[in-house]
Design a protein around this nucleic acid. Structure first.
Lengths: 242, 242
DNA sequence: ACAAAAGTGTTCAACGTACACCCATGC
DNA sequence: GCATGGGTGTACGTTGAACACTTTTGT
């Protein structure tokens, strides 16, 4: 099936494309998380498309025919924020018929984590800014569903990979780290067990520097040892557990 | 971006679609696993599209504009195998520019697990049949990459969800179960620990029936307690572990 | 001095892993 | 009676979870 249908709609060679197949649009949506004031944030712009005018929207666009999906993601992030080299991971694809008011568009969601202070937004069109994820009540299109899927992905992902640390400063206290995890996972953790866990990984480098200007006993600041982490062999899975 | 581009290419209202955006095709590919003779199998058809003529291909087709992606998946499986109600899960989307020789097509891979004996193929066009996954050397398009991604997904998935049991008969021995897991995960397991694991879940129902016609001591046959499993609350995640 | 958070250890239960022998059946 | 796999239990090490007090700083 795949072959014959595509052969017959061979638009690439300059013929018209009368078949219905190529009337489906392909877009990507970028979900970029940040962390500020101990709150999880996400980058949104204001939609100006009816019926979602003035609703908040993810950063998305149609994928061009000569453009890899990854390239489209980079382009969108660049065009919307001015930022380069933002590494993003695919989360999943959303394809309900009526998810987009202007036609049939399927979209693939990509997710990223950025340090807000180190990635100043260079373009602010459509009121681009960081939103507190907790406060978002409704969004344009099915973007709430996409955001929810990305929050789930994030909860899983930060537990299996240290990408959550990208949300913090290069040097961070264990308090920062724990509050980050508590915020993303939505649950309190035991401080002693949390520390034990991270110290036992032996991936935190003690900088010898202390916090400053805190109204209590200052904590040590650490860096994450990305080099050592890169050399550790990752475990495949954790065993059967329904 | 998303909005304005789509507004301008508003093909739904019958105008021509001169923009390049809608010259990207959208397809799905279905990866259907089975298990026979203690080997992992996958359903493939023979491609007749150049340059992949006579290469093996996944079951795929273009998504119609008025069709949910899930519906397209069901349609393809129905048209290719004659089987209804095959539940499939999305794995991921593949979107390299040149992945398809006849034009720009992005594809979303869906995966399923079927009992081979209970799901007799009713259509056999394009030499549809079950292939031993181990023996597959090359495939049409980027289908090898897609299959590999689905095998990884399968390895993860069977450890967190009992869907692997769909590959077995309704009543199965613990030997069957262990060989299934060993085959999918590609590693030997300790028999006593494997049994302890499954018995401790308390999701196996002893049928009281024994294996027959085996050239050794017969084992007990069990059924999986789907009802009880449905009531168990699933754990979210297993904790921080890079 | 007080408030606030840093820093630190032990105990217990649960779980994963390693490992060896007797038993029931078909041939 | 022999080959083949079925069925079983223990010991150990690791890990996660619960839990409280002293220390350091800013105000």
């Amino acid at each position: 099936m795949e072959k014959s249908t595509i052969i017959s709609s061979n638009h690439i060679q300059g013929e018209p494309a009368p078949e219905p197949e190529f009337t489906v649009g392909v877009s990507v949506d970028c979900v970029i998380f940040g962390f500020e004031d101990y709150k999880l944030k996400v980058l949104l712009i204001k939609s100006d498309m009816l019926p979602y005018e003035d609703h908040w929207s993810l950063l998305g666009d149609i994928v061009n025919p000569d453009e890899d999906i990854d390239a489209a993601v980079s382009r969108i992030v660049k065009d919307r924020t001015g930022l380069n080299d933002v590494y993003m991971e695919q989360v999943r694809t959303f394809g309900k018929v009526n998810r987009h008011p202007k036609g049939r568009v399927i979209t693939t969601a990509y997710c990223s984590l950025l340090n807000i202070r180190h990635n100043e937004l260079k373009i602010l069109d459509n009121e681009l800014h960081w939103h507190d994820v907790q406060e978002i009540k409704e969004m344009a299109f099915d973007h709430m569903e996409i955001l929810d899927a990305c929050r789930n992905w994030l909860q899983y992902r930060v537990q299996k990979h240290p990408l959550g640390l990208r949300l913090l400063e290069t040097e961070f206290s264990l308090r920062d780290l724990q509050l980050l995890y508590e915020t993303i996972l939505g649950e309190k953790m035991d401080r002693r067990n949390f520390r034990k866990k991270f110290f036992s990984m032996e991936l935190l480098i003690d900088t010898g520097i202390m916090e400053k200007n805190v109204p209590h006993r200052p904590g040590k600041l650490y860096r994450f040892d990305y080099e050592k982490y890169g050399k550790t062999k990752k475990k495949k899975w954790q065993g059967i557990d329904f």
